[in-house]
Structure formats: C-alpha cells, structure tokens
C-alpha cells in the first residue's frame, strides 16, 4: 500500500526561484535561508519518496479568473511549467502519476470533497519553487509529482478548517492506494506577508512562530481562525498558510519533528520550513 513518509512546509515565492536561477544562494541576504534547507534535502534523500504531492496555489498561470476551482487536482502523466510574464526561467517538466491521481480524485470525491480534475495543468512558481528548493541539485526530478491547487487568490476562499479536513481525507485516499509507494506532501506558501495596499510589508514573527508550533502539535488551533482573522494577523497573502493544513491533516496526529527553520524577511515574507515525519507503523 502507499504510505505517507512525511510532510514539508515551505515558502514558494518567485523571489526564491529568481535567486536560485541567478545562483545567489551564498549571498549574505540569502545564505541563512537556503542553508536551512540542507537538512530537508538530507531527509528527503534518506526517506527517498516515490511521489510528491504539492499543495500550492496558482497565481495566474493555469487558472485565470474566468474559472477558479477551490480545490483542483492534477490527473495527468506530466506537467509543464511556463512563462508567467515576469522573466523567471521555465523549469524542466514534471512526470505525473495519472493512475494515482485518479484514485485520489475518486477517493476524495467519495469522501465529499468535490475536486476539480485537470488532465492538463500548467504549474507556476507556487509548485516549481518548492520542487527546485528540494531537488535542483539532481540532474532530474527524482519523484513523480501531483499538483493539488487550492484557490487562495479570489475570495470567497475555503477555510483553514476545511483545508485540514481535506488533508485528513487525502491521507485516507493515499493510504488506500494498493501500490507500494512512498509519498511526501509539501504544504507551500506563507508565512505572514501582504503584497497589496498601504498595509503591504507586514510580517508578524510572533504569529508565524505560533503557526509553526501549532501546526506540529495542535493543528486544530489553526482551524479556529476565520479567513478575516488570518488576513488581519498574517496579511492577505499570508492566508496561504491554510495550505499547510492540507499537508498536516494527511499526517498522523503525532509526528516526529525532523527540522524547524525560520527566516525573515525573505522578499516580503516570513519563511517557515518544517519537516514532519510520520511515525513508522
């Protein structure tokens, strides 16, 4: 059976992709941020997953505002990155796992999560930045990838509570797949940031660290916030933290903390990294 080895949280902002493209990792501004990913890469090399499910939001590459699915699942054999209009280099395409994706879609829909299924899906920086952070040192992506897009762009958005429940359903869906594959889940985005308006530039370190601790030990705490409360504390784009709860919901109630890393500011954001391992059976 498929087994969830663990989950990772990470920022996905384009400034990180830009820094990687330009080889700025050892520059003073970036060094501490990137160095903090080395233990993540070591853990991934050790657990050696077969599949990565990447929970992210599209920012205007695959989904325009004409059609905005709340939850969309990639169900294709491969996924392409593409030009987002601001000059990031396009990364190599990603191998998918259509059979696994369709199983997940069926299981989730049977558990009352009405996923949008996508047989063509361009993946933007929200997806490719985490993949590059983890595996750009390798000649090819070492995993099959499955995109799970959550609308965090156009309100009304789903809630933290609903994302956590989706994660629980996703966990059941993964673990009911008959193939022996090891799955890692990336919860991406966040932490606190606001790009827009006169309030742009907020970073709330205290709230970010509260989120990181609670995601580990008491994710239910996060589900008590309304979206308005989350935006007030973490900023309009900081609401992306709800996607961490999809990852967390899929893991066991008690997880082993392999790594905790935080740095701020990274561009306009507080950047939080967690590696959480599912306990062995």
């Amino acid at each position: 059976m498929a087994r969830i080895v663990g989950g990772v949280t990470t920022s996905h902002i384009p400034a990180i992709s830009n820094a990687m493209a330009k080889g700025l990792e050892q520059e003073p501004y970036w060094k501490r941020f990137f160095d903090g990913y080395e233990p993540v890469k070591e853990w991934l090399a050790k657990v050696d997953p077969d599949v990565a499910i990447v929970v992210y939001n599209d920012h205007g590459l695959n989904f325009f505002l004409n059609q905005v699915p709340t939850f969309a699942l990639g169900c294709a054999d491969h996924y392409e990155n593409a030009d987002e209009g601001w000059g990031l280099p396009t990364l190599a395409s990603f191998e998918g796992d259509a059979q696994f994706s369709w199983h997940l879609a069926e299981s989730l829909i049977n558990q009352d999560f009405d996923m949008t299924t996508c047989q063509e899906m361009l993946v933007d920086h929200g997806f490719v930045t985490p993949m590059a952070l983890m595996w750009r040192h390798l000649p090819a992506w070492p995993v099959k990838a499955i995109p799970l897009a959550v609308n965090t762009v156009q309100h009304p958005l789903t809630s933290a509570r609903r994302c956590y429940q989706l994660g629980k359903a996703l966990g059941k869906a993964i673990e009911s797949y008959p193939e022996d594959s090891k799955v890692v889940i990336f919860g991406t985005g966040g932490l606190s940031h606001q790009l827009q308006g006169e309030r742009a530039g907020i970073i709330d370190v205290d709230f970010d660290l509260e989120c990181m601790e609670h995601i580990i030990h008491d994710p239910e705490w996060m589900t008590r916030f309304s979206n308005a409360e989350l935006m007030e504390k973490a900023g309009t784009e900081g609401i992306e933290v709800i996607m961490w709860l999809v990852m967390r919901g899929a893991l066991a109630p008690k997880v082993d903390v392999i790594h905790k890393h935080y740095h701020a500011p990274i561009s306009n954001t507080g950047a939080g990294v967690l590696v959480l391992e599912n306990p062995a059976d």
Partner: peptide, 8 residues
C-alpha cells in the same frame, strides 16, 4: 482591515 483590498 486598514490599507487592504481583499480580492473578492
């Protein structure tokens, strides 16, 4: 929320 234009 001040200085904020929630995209709805």
């Amino acid at each position: 929320i001040p200085g904020t234009y929630v995209f709805d």
